Amino acid sequence: MKWFSWTAWASLLIILSVIGYSVSYQKVQELLLPAFSYEFSFNPVERSSFEYELPTRTITIGMAGDVLLHKDLNNYEDYRPSFSGVRDMTRSLDFFLINLESLAAGEAYELSGYPNFNSTDTIADGLVDLGSDLIMVSNNHTLDKRPAGLRQSLANLQERDLPYVGAYTSAEDAATKRIFEVDALTIGVVSYTYGLNGHIVPADQPYLVNLIDVAKIQSDIRDLDTEVDLVIALMHWGTEYELEENAEQNYLATIAHQAGADIIFGGHPHVLQPYEVMESGDKKTHIFYSLGNFFSGQTIENTNYGGVAVLSVETDGDDILAIEPSFYPTEVTFTPDRVVVNPMPESQASFWTNHIGVPLYE
């Protein structure tokens, strides 16, 4: 061990001393300090479940029956007094439609009643005063004054900024979809008539009037359904003065329902016909087969009773949650000064709402 120098011995003693001190210090700490537990527990805060609900709103869609201006009704300088009894109701609706079954081409095309109807253009001012948002112009009297009379009638509506559907001034006009933004809803509308009382659509102007054609109805509705929340189909159909829908109306309603129509409003019978909901799977179509006469000079039994069909659509802005039907009955009254429209007396209103099968609109 001679080779092991004294400096090596000194280093060894220092190392052993440090090790001894560390062991002794740890033992002392174990004796002096209390034991400490590292166990950890977690108690989560209890939270109640919460689902955010979008605010809902109700949008009212209403359609009035036929406006058919017979002789002595076709020359009023001002139609607004005739509608004053129902104006507040129609103007309260969010989206109001009406069927103008007479042309409004004015004196240049001869004012006339049955069988070829044409009135002063002032009827358009009356429709504006009612709060009309869309005018149905496809019916069996659309070409009563030939294509020129139709164009003038439509020009008179355009002059008042009244949108129309079912008859058109050009191919471009016909190709323009009738889509409306009504609050949270996007609504698309199509319109057709069974015929034209023998008048012929010129071969070079096929766009003038939408005639009932199954393939066209299916194509139009399916195409529109991809762009809107609701599709409304307006149908001029049925048998005049019959209080019930016929088999053809039911068939065409089925076609429109299967294509995607949500609402169908009908006219032409000039009397009130029932309401029906057509269902297949999750799809529902609300159908008012005929809304009767809203304003006319007819005196045949039941033709002075009509009204406004109303569908109250509940939506949260994303989905349609419910659609509820009701009916606002009206009556045409002949006074010494003029023909007027008023709310139907309660006794008759109860009968006709029961006949249609929906509650009274309130």
Rank of each mutant, 00 (worst) to 15 (best):
F117M: 11
I356C: 01
V214I: 15
I98G: 04
A253H: 05
T299L: 05
T56S: 15
N354H: 12
P34E: 02
D78F: 14
I179R: 09
G292N: 05
D319A: 13
M136G: 10
G317F: 04
L73H: 02
A256M: 06
V339P: 00
I263L: 15
A261D: 02
Y109K: 08
T186S: 04
Q273A: 08
K2C: 07
W237S: 15
E301F: 11
L33C: 07
Q298W: 10
I300L: 08
I323M: 15
F334R: 11
E242K: 14
N293D: 12
E181F: 03
D121H: 12
Y289D: 13
V128Q: 09
P206G: 02
Y289T: 14
L13N: 09
P345Y: 15
E30M: 10
H257D: 05
E107Q: 02
G65H: 11
N250M: 00
L111P: 01
L93H: 06
F95S: 11
N139R: 10
A309Y: 00
D282K: 06
D282A: 07
T186Q: 03
Y52W: 09
M278T: 04
V190I: 10
N75S: 15
W3F: 14
S296V: 08
L234M: 14
N250W: 02
M235F: 15
V214L: 13
Y25L: 13
S11T: 12
I255W: 03
S112H: 07
F83Q: 13
L224D: 11
G198H: 07
Y361A: 05
N118P: 01
S280Y: 07
Q26A: 12
V128C: 05
E51D: 06
H355G: 07
S153C: 04
V313F: 12
L321M: 12
Y305S: 08
N246H: 04
A215G: 01
N140S: 04
T254N: 11
D316H: 08
S17M: 13
G149L: 13
N293S: 10
E324S: 15
M1E: 07
M278F: 03
D337G: 06
W6N: 14
V189I: 14
D72W: 10
P359M: 03
